[in-house]
Every structure is written in structure tokens, then in C-alpha cells.
Amino acid sequence: MIRLAVAGAAHGHVRYALDEADRRAGIELVALSEPHRDDRERWTPPGVPSYADHAEMLQAHTPDVVAVCGVYGERADVVVEALHAGAHVIADKPLCTELEDLGRIAAAAATTGRHVSLMLEKRWYPATLAARRLVEDGVLGTLALISSTGPHQLRRRTRPPWFFRRDGYGDLLGDLPVHDVDLVLALTGATGGTVTGVAPRRPFADAPEFCDSGALVMTAGEVTATIEAHWLWPDASAVTAPYRMRLTGTEGVADIDWWTGEVSVRTDTPDAWRPSTPAGLRPAEQALTALAAGIAPEVATAESLAASRVALLAARSAHSGSRPLNWSLPAETPSAPRLP
């Protein structure tokens, strides 16, 4: 039995953790904390104790796992306190909004021996699992280029005020590209490279800190990856998130369309590889299954820190004239396990 607590419910992704508690007999939702009353009342299930203060919740319930889904700029403190309270952490992205906070989280995880796992749902889509298999099977030869696009609907009138402030939201490039940065790292196995961020557009006079579009370019070993991210997708569109990624190798090209769930492959040999579509996983499913078994999640602390660090470096680059910044993983960082 896992005693799960939720710390922060400022974003709808909190449902990732709540869904697991609803679906699985081995997970008990023991409490939820959220400082804003409306969000607290909206997301607290009947019969579950709720708190305005996450510290009070941690002291009262000593959970095994804490799901952190609060205001972005406040997440680092909650993650660190949850780790020191003896809990593992599963978290919505972004894990934090500052590189300095990422360092505090890394130190707390190392000191406590607890895991930090980002709920990176793109990892578990069937199309992603199929694409990772084709790369591992060598169908595309040696990867050379990766490009992705991450359109999002802003729906500005529905967003809370903190979303448009630097101390609440952080930076565009520190947020939206984290999923795709994680996939670049998983697909390439790279341990170092450079990252450059560009994010000049700040369109709102009443929210001068908010940027609605940008891109990053990262080298990952010998692979060059470009990741576009923006809040410009039309609000009226029935297609809410047409995410796509192209993998270009020395022997073929694969296009991943996460909206349709399709993976199309083109090689010099017709019908050389037909992509299968394995069953996917829910965003928090793999991490909680692993933690219940007493093992590290596939997206464990090292992977969570790595994707977050590259994205935050891209944001820093964008604020410093788009100069390239070096990134590297610690020598002891374990690689993610191969898919079964």
C-alpha cells in the first residue's frame, strides 16, 4: 500500500496523481494541500482531509509519495520539504523555475535517498514507445536530427494571475520543452552538449514578463535537436495539442504524431519496418508501480534533473542574448533501462 498525498493543485495535471488513487487498490490518497481555497475544494475528493499548508499536511500524514502540482515558482520548496519528510516525489513539470532551486532539489534527493520523478506523459504514449523501439532496433541508422513542435492553447481568460508572472510561471523555455528535451536525452543517450534558447516575444502590456513563443536548439552528442514551443495555437481549434516530432537518421526518417497516435517511417527499403503500437501508460502509472515495488522509476531523479536542467539553461540562454550554454550529466548518472 502506498500512502499518497498531493501538495498543490494549481494545474489540472494534478489529475494524473488522483487518477492513480482512483484506479488502483494499492494506493491510498491520504490528504491534499493547496493554499488557494477554490482549487483546494475543486480537487479534494470527498472524505479526504485537505490543508492550506503543505507542511502541516506532511507532518500530519507522513506519506510515502507526494505528488507536487502547485504554482510553478513554489514547487521547489515543496519538493525539498517532501523529500526531507521521508517521501518520494512525483511532480508535474516544470519541477522548478530556477537553476539554483534545481540544485537544492538534487542535494535533498541525494541526502535523503528518495526519488524525484517527473510525470512526463509523452514518454508513455503508444507512439513514443513505438518510436523508441525503432530507434533501438536501428531502423533509422544513426540519429542525426530531431525536431519537434509543441503548440498550446493559451485560453488567457481562464488562466490565473500567477501564470503571467515570472515568480509564478517562470519561463516559457523552462516549461513547455521539458517533455521533448527528456525524449531527446532518452533517444540519444547523450551525456553532454550545448543548448541555445530564443524567446523574444512578450506581447501583453499588462503581463510584461510573459513570453508566448520561442525555441531551443540543443546538441546531444552528435545529434542536433530543435524544439519549438508556444502558446499561439488558436483557442477555437478542436485540435488542442497537435504535438509532432521528426527523427532523422542516416538510413531513414520517422514522424511521430502524438495527436493521431501515428508513427510513419520512410527508409530506402520499402516495408522494412512496420511500427507496432504497444499499449501506453498513464502519466503517473510507471513511477508509482516502480515505487510500490521498491525500485527506481524509469524517469527517476537523474532523468528528471537532466531534462529540467537543459530546459532551464535554454531559458537562461534566451535571457542572455541567446548565447550557447554547455550542459552535461554527472558521470554517475544511470541510463534509463531499455524497454521490455
Rank of each mutant, 00 (worst) to 15 (best):
3 R>N: 04
8 G>L: 13
11 H>G: 02
11 H>Y: 12
12 G>N: 07
13 H>A: 04
15 R>S: 11
16 Y>P: 00
16 Y>H: 14
18 L>H: 01
21 A>K: 09
25 A>W: 08
25 A>G: 11
26 G>K: 05
27 I>P: 02
29 L>F: 13
30 V>P: 02
32 L>F: 11
34 E>Y: 05
35 P>S: 14
35 P>A: 15
39 D>Q: 14
40 R>T: 04
51 Y>C: 00
51 Y>S: 03
56 E>W: 02
57 M>R: 03
58 L>K: 03
59 Q>I: 00
64 D>I: 12
67 A>N: 08
75 R>S: 04
76 A>W: 07
83 L>T: 10
84 H>N: 08
84 H>Y: 10
86 G>A: 08
90 I>P: 02
91 A>N: 07
93 K>L: 04
93 K>F: 03
94 P>I: 11
96 C>R: 04
101 D>F: 13
103 G>P: 01
103 G>S: 06
103 G>F: 03
106 A>W: 02
107 A>I: 02
113 G>V: 05
116 V>I: 06
116 V>L: 02
118 L>P: 06
119 M>A: 15
131 A>Q: 05
135 V>A: 09
144 A>K: 13
145 L>K: 12
151 P>A: 01
152 H>N: 10
154 L>Q: 00
156 R>D: 01
157 R>A: 09
163 F>T: 04
164 F>I: 02
166 R>H: 13
170 G>H: 09
172 L>K: 00
176 L>M: 15
177 P>D: 00
181 V>G: 07
181 V>E: 09
182 D>Y: 14
186 A>L: 15
186 A>K: 08
187 L>H: 11
188 T>H: 03
190 A>V: 08
191 T>D: 04
192 G>T: 07
194 T>N: 08
194 T>G: 11
194 T>Q: 14
195 V>R: 09
197 G>D: 05
197 G>E: 08
197 G>F: 05
198 V>C: 01
208 P>I: 12
208 P>C: 12
211 C>H: 04
216 L>S: 05
217 V>E: 10
217 V>T: 15
219 T>Y: 02
219 T>K: 06
219 T>V: 03
224 T>Q: 07
225 A>G: 11
225 A>K: 14
226 T>E: 01
227 I>L: 14
228 E>H: 11
232 L>N: 08
233 W>P: 01
236 A>Q: 12
237 S>T: 03
240 T>N: 10
241 A>G: 01
241 A>M: 06
242 P>T: 12
242 P>R: 12
245 M>A: 15
246 R>N: 04
249 G>R: 07
250 T>M: 05
251 E>C: 08
251 E>P: 00
253 V>M: 01
254 A>E: 10
259 W>P: 00
261 G>H: 02
263 V>H: 07
263 V>M: 03
263 V>F: 02
271 D>W: 15
272 A>G: 14
273 W>P: 06
275 P>F: 09
276 S>F: 03
277 T>L: 15
279 A>H: 03
279 A>K: 04
279 A>N: 04
281 L>H: 15
282 R>P: 00
288 L>G: 08
288 L>K: 06
301 T>P: 06
301 T>A: 10
305 L>N: 10
305 L>C: 09
307 A>Q: 01
310 V>A: 12
310 V>I: 15
311 A>K: 02
313 L>Q: 07
316 R>K: 07
319 H>W: 10
320 S>Q: 12
320 S>G: 11
329 L>S: 12
332 E>L: 05
335 S>L: 15
339 L>M: 13
